[in-house]
Amino acid sequence: MAIDKDLLDIMACPKCKGDVNVSENGDGLICDACRVVYPIKDGIPVMLVEEAKSIEPDPRD
């Protein structure tokens, strides 16, 4: 099940309540502000803080 754009538009990061975007390989939802990724398991986004994984800082920053 692909992540619909409408769903992305209304979803908020569990930590900061900011926007999330689909990762390049499509296996997670990334919050750029918190630098964390929320996994997508079997096509289902897992929007739980405890499931978030840290990602490398953005080199552009």
């Binding site: 099940m1 992540i3 619909d4 409408d6 769903l7 209304i10 979803m11 908020a12 990061c13 569990p14 309540k17 398991k41 079997d42 096509g43 289902i44 986004p45 897992v46 929007m47 739980l48």
Partner: peptide
Amino acid sequence: ASKKVDQMGLDNIMLTQMDAMDLKFQ
């Protein structure tokens, strides 16, 4: 639920794992 969505071709349905007491929507 996801199996049903796929089997029935329900294109208008999206699923996400969340705590109902702490919804992650705007």
